[in-house]
Amino acid sequence: MSTKNFRPFNLKKTIRPGETIIQSLLFVAGVLSIMITITLVYELGKEALLFFNNPDVTLAKFFGTTEWQPGIGKYGIWPLVTSTLITSFIAMLIALPLGLAAALYLSEYASPKVRSILKPILEILAGIPTVVYGFFALLFVTPILQSIMGKDNISVYNMLSAGLVMGIMILPLISSMSEDAFSAVPRPLREGAYAMGATKLETSLQVVLPAALSGIGAAVILGISRAIGETMIVAVAAGSGPNFTLNPFEAAETMTGNIARISGGDLSYGSIDYTSLFAIALMLFLVTLVLNLISQYVVQRFREQYE
């Protein structure tokens, strides 16, 4: 091959149909997720609208009464909401302190070796299917609660057991997000505290923890969102049948539990039972969407703070 030869070439743009087609296909794949969200909102909204357009259903009944039995004309959403809130509250009561403490230990105290043993345990907890947690709640935690409190004081299906186990389920989420937040706190901040003669506990609780507060906030919000949307634990252990009560020792069905039970039965399209499920699902979707958005926003802001 001679390098001296002059070989003419053309630098004009060439159209490569293959490239264009592939790029279009990839674009479609990227946009599909938007289509999913739109379809989700459309389908949930359409059926939920059918529910609310039913002449029998009024917002006054929906928010103003406390019995939920759409099949027989009772449209008060409160029993489902209260039980959802109670189980989620109990779950967070367990998950938040334990998750924070676990994260503090892992990020501030544990040696790499101890960490490499303890951390996978949390990861295993995070990977256990929720139906298995349901089994655990109903057949392990509930009997223990009953033997502590007496069978007369706590029913076989109760919100306490479901909430406690849900707390264990959410613990790894809180702990790993908080740990991320702690490790984002710059090292010099800790050194500053130690150089003032602070102990490890004083540094952890009074410097690292406050500095990571927004990251922890994001974890809490996401944890609440997870608790509200969790289905199988409450479907198995919290009881079936809406029950307007604030007593965690009683059985009460959550929003998700209601969807699972009613949709698992015989359901005819377009019936009030059918559309009512979409009304609940839409509420679930909107609440968790808002919570997730806030959480994401907070995490992002938190990252920027230390970058």
Binding site: I34, L44, I259, S263, A281, L289, N292
Partner: peptide, 20 residues
């Protein structure tokens, strides 16, 4: 953002999408 949010939608809501 939408993808991140979809990852956080409760699975039972996906069930409702599947049903509809």
């Amino acid at each position: 953002t939408n993808i991140n949010n979809l990852a956080g939608v409760p699975s039972i809501v996906y069930g409702m999408l599947g049903l509809a």
